[in-house]
Design a protein around this nucleic acid. Sequence first.
DNA 1: CATGAAAAGGCCTGAAG
DNA 2: CTTCAGGCCTTTTCATG
Lengths: 149, 149
Amino acid sequence: MDEKDLKILRLVQNDARLTADAISLDVGLSAPAVQKRLKKLRETGVIEREIAVLSQGKLGRDMTIIVEVILERESRAHLDAFKRKMRQAACVQQCYYTTGEADFMLILTVKDIQEYERFTEENFFDESNISRFKTSVVMDRVKASLDVL
Amino acid sequence: MDEKDLKILRLVQNDARLTADAISLDVGLSAPAVQKRLKKLRETGVIEREIAVLSQGKLGRDMTIIVEVILERESRAHLDAFKRKMRQAACVQQCYYTTGEADFMLILTVKDIQEYERFTEENFFDESNISRFKTSVVMDRVKASLDVL
DNA sequence: CATGAAAAGGCCTGAAG
DNA sequence: CTTCAGGCCTTTTCATG
């Protein structure tokens, strides 16, 4: 992992379709050398995966909601059950288990507020283990980068 | 946008390196037909971009922090200034302007708590427009999907 | 108008220097 | 690491439903 690897990573984390040839010009290596480094970065897990980012708006899911959840009981079994539920729920994009007031922080994308209401009924009200939850509607997605470097 | 397009999108949002040939088997089209659909999906912006997801842990930035920020004054100028700052800050991965108690919700990744402290000093304490902020440290990143479909 | 088959071009992957 | 050759993927072209 030298400076050239970092440069390659900065490029592909913004555009995974760049050809090795294009990268080689920026980095100052031959195209095969770049490919070799990319292969190693994938194998070692530095590059976890390569994905297509879809437009939420064009797919009719342009509403983003943030939810703080506080559980009633924080036993291991209850925590795991809640985590499992969030992983399965399609509209949950991100779920964090946190310190502080809330136990969990969720970021969801939905078509409209009705879809969110349905989500809460299926995931918060049926199960009595939710103490309370606080909903915030996102007015502006100011920044949504995935850049690590 | 028919069912075949949706199937293609579901595949590439998980793995953008799939060949058109591999996709064609799942979708029931020829490889060129898949390529043409992919091209159109890119041109129309349904596929916004294709990126490499890097491992935060392997790059030494495995600490995730969530911050709720409440501003002192909510004038347009102050809002814009804060948004601009967040866009520039490298450790800010996501920034949302929200309804509810907090004005902004941030998700950052840092190397350690010292880096976060530095961030707060540079962005929260120097400027008097921050009323208060609440920090939560992420213990478990339960889910971090980007799947829209 | 979108699909499929075949050919041309470009890109990636190995070996040798 | 680079150069070069081989092979795969992609991208046209063109004919078809």
